[in-house]
Design a protein around this nucleic acid. Structure first.
Length: 480
RNA sequence: GGGAGCGUGGUCUAGCUUGGUAUGAUUCUGCGUUUGGGACGCAGAGGUCGCGCGUUCAAAUCUCGCCGCUCCCA
């Protein structure tokens, strides 16, 4: 009995069902009354806030400032850059009425803010002295998802940040694209313990309207790749239609060079998939809403008093050390139930304190990620918790990295490509520069070019599709 | 675009063929006993049976329509 409280399927047997149960039962999210929309509950939002705060620090340190844009964008603006609009059009939500009255110009619920932001940039920027302009927006974007939706990965509205920068020259803008990509990679690896592969998107997969797109990709346990963040070099593709112009030092008017970049709550989805196990969530310590849970265990009122006192002391000390700690002193539940519940919620470290521990002036540590338990002296406990949380993070990252490396493979033939794809691998394969080959591979196998890494030049192999001379060796996978 | 299935307390569910006012579990509240890996007893709370029209003395159940959800195929 009671088993149905937890996740009832194995991650390895029914990944999709496992994921849905895990996010719902661990109380990160709930479904909203409208299809394709989800509600973030406090534990879920807390993870987002951790990611947000970590990124905000890095953005600020590199000279970016936050602003806020409205959700509604007039149709006339959205259509100004043709490719861009064509790319987003099928998934745009439109507002056509206010009350019972029809609106003259339809309003789009922003699928992304380039067009709106750049209209404003053209007003704000006059001179080279106004540049670079580096601004970031924390908001939501809406893109109608009619296909199967999945919390965090595919929803019709999602939380994200979108950064937009404007520069006087191409080089500086391109450096920004790379700097942001590195900043993202650092955040994902150091906060979420997810290893990523960075590089360029192919022409076919780049952001619509961009000159090129850089991406960071990670591999999920079901063998699908997840795009965890993108950074786009827009060149002058938007500055021209939106007239983002400046007078340079010689007073010559020229079009500015722009970038845009973003990460979304997809990061949370990736984190759940990469680290979770059959018991539910496994949270990386740096973003866990609660890092340490203390479970008091007692048999008599006498023990209870003593143990509650010690728990409280430990709680105080950990709080002073800025550890997010919670003592679970719910009386109606037995310890076993609490163990299971906190494990489902993925709390990285559990401290059990019982009469046997107290006799020896110690507590029991139970780690979530590897489910190992051992004794720890109460003296020096805070320092040990701090180092343990770091160690847990490092373990989680290196475990995930090993899996990523083990599952990345090189092939030379289309047959091998298909075989490895079925095994859920990330595949490095040579391809020529004819876009038809990439297209046909996608049609036939549903795998696409996820990322072209900086070391992927290869002109001495044969394209797996047409056998012509290859130009590069990008990473392929099926994607989310 | 084509096909299939489902909708019953917060959650999961029985009942529907053969019409008679809804079963069980879980959850929730109170009291008591429990507490080192998902405790138990007792008492109690909680349902416009997706919505609407119809048939009938009587509809969760039968007819028709609508809405919503899920899955499969293009």
């Amino acid at each position: 009995m009671g088993k149905e409280i937890g996740v009832t399927v194995k991650k390895s047997e029914d990944f999709s069902e496992w994921y849905t149960q895990t996010v719902i039962k661990s109380e990160l999210v709930d479904y909203a009354p409208v299809k394709g929309l989800i509600v973030l509950r406090p534990d879920g939002y807390s993870i987002w806030e951790s990611i947000k705060s970590s990124l905000d620090k890095k953005f600020a340190a590199t000279g970016h400032r936050n602003g806020f844009l409205p959700t509604l964008i007039p149709e006339s603006l959205l259509t100004k850059e043709k490719d861009h609009f064509a790319g987003f059009n099928p998934e745009v939500f439109w507002v056509t009425k206010s009350g019972e009255g029809e609106l003259g110009d339809r309003l789009a619920l922003r699928p992304t803010s380039e067009t709106l932001a750049y209209t404003l940039f053209s007003k704000w920027i006059r001179s080279w002295r106004d540049l670079p302009l580096k601004i970031n927006f924390w908001n939501t974007a809406l893109r109608a998802e009619i296909k199967a939706t999945k919390p965090f990965l595919r929803t019709s509205e999602f939380l994200w940040q979108e950064g937009h920068t404007v520069h006087t020259n191409s080089d500086e803008a391109q450096k920004e694209v790379i700097d942001i990509l590195e900043l993202y990679k650092k955040t994902v690896e150091e906060e979420l313990a997810i290893p990523v592969i960075t590089g360029k998107k192919s022409e076919k997969e780049k952001f619509v309207g961009a000159v090129y797109t850089f991406t960071m990709e990670s591999l999920m346990p079901d063998g699908k790749a997840l795009q965890m963040g993108t950074s786009h070099f827009l060149g002058q593709n938007f500055s021209k239609p939106f007239e983002v112009k400046f007078a340079d030092k010689e007073n010559v008017e020229s079009y500015a060079w722009q970038t845009s970049w973003g990460v979304s709550w997809r990061l949370i989805g990736g984190m759940i998939m990469v680290h979770g196990d059959d018991k539910g969530l496994v949270l990386p310590p740096r973003v866990a809403p609660i890092q340490v849970v203390v479970i008091p265990i007692y048999y008599s009122d006498e023990d209870r008093e003593k143990i509650e006192k010690v728990s409280k002391e430990i709680e105080e000390k950990l709080k002073n050390a800025e550890i997010r700690v919670q003592v679970d002193n719910r009386e109606e539940l037995k310890p076993g139930f609490k163990f299971n519940e906190w494990e489902m919620k993925g709390i990285p470290l559990r401290i059990e304190i019982g009469p046997k521990d107290l006799e020896k002036n110690q507590v029991t540590f139970a780690r979530r990620h590897n489910r190992q338990k051992d004794d720890q002296a109460i003296t020096g406990l805070v320092e040990r918790v701090v180092s343990e949380l770091d160690k847990i993070h490092n373990d989680m990252f290196s475990d995930a990295k090993k899996i990523l490396e083990d599952r990345t493979i090189e092939v030379e033939t289309y047959n091998d490509f298909k075989t490895e794809l079925e095994k859920g691998r990330l595949i490095k394969a040579p391809i020529c520069d004819n876009p038809k080959c990439e297209e046909e591979i996608k049609e036939e196998t549903s795998a696409d070019v996820r990322v072209i890494t900086s070391d992927s030049d290869d002109t001495s192999s044969k394209c797996i599709k047409c056998s012509d001379q290859s130009t590069s060796r990008p990473l392929f996978a099926r994607g989310y």
